[in-house]
Amino acid sequence: MFSESAGLNLKAGYRYSKGSVMIKTDNVYGWTGELQGESEADYSGFYFGTGFVLAFGSADKRAVNMAIAAGAEQFPEIGKKIYADAVTLYNAGLYKQSEVKFTELNQISPGNTETKKYLDDINLKLEGNKKLENIKKLLAEGDEYRAKNKFKEAYSRYTEVNRIDAGNETALFYLKYFRETALARYGDARALNSQGKINAALKLAKEASEYSPDDAEIADFVKELKGDKNNRRKADALYNEGVLNFQKGYYDKAITAWQKVVEIYPDDAEALKNIELAKEKYRNSSAAEEQSAEQALKEARDLFEQGLMEESLAKADYVLRIDGNNAEALKLTEEIKAKQENKTTTLNKR
């Protein structure tokens, strides 16, 4: 009815945990397994009786059990059960639990080569599990940062995954996508910069740098644009200063401000045009001022002769504001001050 590889056994006992029973086996027909021990039972298809289990034997499982039993023979009696448990846990993929058992067995039989082989293999498997867990964690963080548009942080996570596992498809996909996006943003930033749109160019260049933080060329371009932005801010301030001075009639100051703009941006057409306009205004105003200064100087001399020192001094000061080196105005100012001092001295003596 049954072969030795598929014999019938009768199992009875109590459950330690789900799927695990302590069994005693009677040799009903062709059964060659152990007569007593803890066993994992597949209950699907089983017939349950009160206190009894009927099952068909598994040739593969029986072979494994026999191999475990044979391996256990190299250990003293106290280590046989530990060895069997350790190997069973190992075969089930429960490596941490198996490691505990093999470590205990190694204390009982130090230097056993098979125990060492298992422990070494378990260590590799556990390291592999840690590696996979780390990769899973890094990918989750990368996806989360990417969803929040924090591309620099996402890039670092995907790069770390690629370092751990160069063949990881998810990391490779996003690193390629990030690189292509960075180059596209960089190209657009270059085009905008050539059109003089510094702010828009800087925005795209920064985005490119976020997608590809390790790209030195993009990073240098961002620094360049930041410098240009600062220069543009300074140049705009100087330009506006020139406009204000021009409106007030201070043409020489307006010229000075716009010349500083040209030092920063030699091709600034508006600043260059304004300089020429201010120069023309300055020449015309200088001629008018010169004529006005001559008239004011004549009036200052007449007032001096009349003894009106304060009025004379005001006219002389006006001339000096137009021409600070006017020799006649300077001389007249000294004469007026001397007169005023003498007059003050006389009053003080009285």
Score class of each variant (00 low, 15 high):
4 E>S: 11
4 E>R: 07
6 A>C: 06
7 G>C: 08
7 G>L: 03
10 L>E: 08
10 L>S: 07
18 K>R: 12
22 M>R: 11
23 I>F: 14
31 W>R: 07
36 Q>F: 12
54 L>V: 15
55 A>W: 05
56 F>C: 02
60 D>L: 10
66 M>V: 01
69 A>I: 06
71 G>M: 11
72 A>P: 12
74 Q>N: 14
89 L>S: 06
91 N>G: 03
94 L>P: 00
95 Y>V: 00
99 E>V: 05
99 E>R: 15
109 S>N: 08
116 K>M: 05
121 D>N: 14
132 L>T: 07
141 E>D: 11
142 G>A: 07
148 K>A: 08
149 N>E: 06
152 K>L: 04
152 K>S: 08
164 I>F: 05
169 E>H: 11
171 A>I: 00
172 L>Q: 12
175 L>G: 06
181 T>V: 07
182 A>K: 00
183 L>N: 10
187 G>A: 11
196 G>L: 02
196 G>F: 04
197 K>Q: 09
198 I>H: 02
212 S>R: 06
214 D>Q: 15
217 E>H: 01
220 D>A: 14
227 G>R: 13
227 G>E: 14
230 N>C: 02
237 A>V: 09
239 Y>A: 01
240 N>I: 01
249 G>E: 03
262 V>I: 13
271 A>M: 06
275 I>M: 06
277 L>S: 06
288 A>E: 15
297 L>P: 03
300 A>D: 11
308 L>T: 02
317 D>K: 15
330 L>N: 01
330 L>Y: 00
332 L>A: 02
340 Q>V: 07
342 N>E: 09
